[in-house]
């Protein structure tokens, strides 16, 4: 439609052929998903904006996306491997094992905190312009995904440094990335929607993330958890994601508890579907309460 020129007659013709839009109370537009597609450019622009803005007026710019995970990896390796003497998985060097987990964890943690604040920080947009609101949290997750890709380069560098050759399993990494994405999105949608109404979640999110870092097997291998408790441990969906990443990256003798993994993936699916449902349910009142 945008390509049509401005001549009045064309506009008239167009309108006749056009379906009319009806706005009514409680009407969840059947066109929502179609609208989401129509607004895909906005989605792209919002993500583009956040990426552009992210490192503006910083001296080292995008290097921050490398430095933060790298230093965290160093600290974790020193604390958990050298001081606490925890075992690595298979024959992988400890830094690679840590980084295989750090990658999805930092993605999840950045995505969750960006996503849960995304609606509030775009309040002016939400109260002044219509577009499917799902775009806002989704583009926040995309931005973190870009960071994820950038810090993936560190992993490659580490592998080169340790002469570590991954097995065929590395090819399954995109599938696990998708799960990590779904988890960030699912949890993010819940928190973003809740945050609009209850600003308490502003304080809850940093807490979840701080807490999550310790209860997820980021700095250590999940094999140190006793076998009979593994399924309980898998109730934390990040356990499944991290185990999956390690399984794919480290290869070799790494074992993954598939039953635990299934639980995690099931929870991720539930969280995502529930998140979309809750978000859609509360979306219509965002402009009124934000």
């Amino acid at each position: 439609m945008a390509q049509l020129e401005k001549s009045g007659s064309i506009i008239f013709m167009l309108d006749r052929s056009q379906k009319e839009l009806v706005i009514e109370a409680g009407r969840s537009e059947s066109q929502y998903w179609k609208d989401l597609w129509r607004y895909r450019e906005l989605f792209y622009f919002l993500a583009w904006r956040d990426i552009l803005v992210r490192y503006k007026q910083t001296v080292i710019g995008i290097a921050w996306a490398l430095i933060r995970p790298f230093l965290t990896m160093v600290v974790f390796t020193v604390v958990f491997s050298l001081l606490a003497k925890l075992p690595s998985e298979g024959n992988a060097p400890y830094p690679i094992m840590v980084f295989a987990a750090l990658l999805p964890w930092q993605f999840f943690s950045n995505a969750l905190s960006e996503c849960s604040n995304s609606l509030i920080s775009n309040a002016n947009l939400i109260s002044k312009v219509y577009f499917p609101r799902l775009i806002v949290p989704a583009s926040a997750v995309i931005v973190s995904f870009v960071d994820f890709l950038v810090s993936g380069m560190i992993l490659l560098a580490l592998m080169a440094w340790y002469n570590f050759v991954p097995s065929w399993r590395i090819l399954t990494l995109p599938a696990f990335t998708l799960i990590a994405f779904a988890l960030s999105m699912g949890a993010g949608l819940w928190l973003a929607a809740l945050n609009v109404k209850y600003r308490d979640f502003r304080y809850v999110v940093p807490f979840i993330l701080q807490f999550g870092l310790y209860i997820s097997p980021v700095g250590f291998s999940s094999t140190i958890v006793p076998e009979k408790w593994r399924w309980v441990y898998s109730l934390n969906p990040m356990v499944g994601v991290i185990d999956g990443f390690r399984w794919a990256i480290i290869g070799g003798q790494t074992k993954i508890s598939w039953s635990g993994f299934t639980i995690s993936v099931g929870l991720v699916a539930l969280l995502l579907l529930g998140g979309i449902w809750y978000f859609r349910k509360t979306e219509r009142t965002f402009a009124d309460v934000i």
């Binding site: 056009q18 009806v22 706005i23 009514e24 947009l125 002044k128 312009v129 009124d288």
Partner: peptide, 27 residues
């Protein structure tokens, strides 16, 4: 009318592409 918020009662039907300008420089 610009679909930012939903009505409590009643209905609106709109034919055509709508652009609403409730503020300049939004975003």
């Amino acid at each position: 009318l610009s679909r930012i918020t939903e009505p409590t009662t009643g209905r609106v039907s709109i034919k055509g592409r709508v652009a609403s300008l409730l503020e300049v420089g939004t975003g």
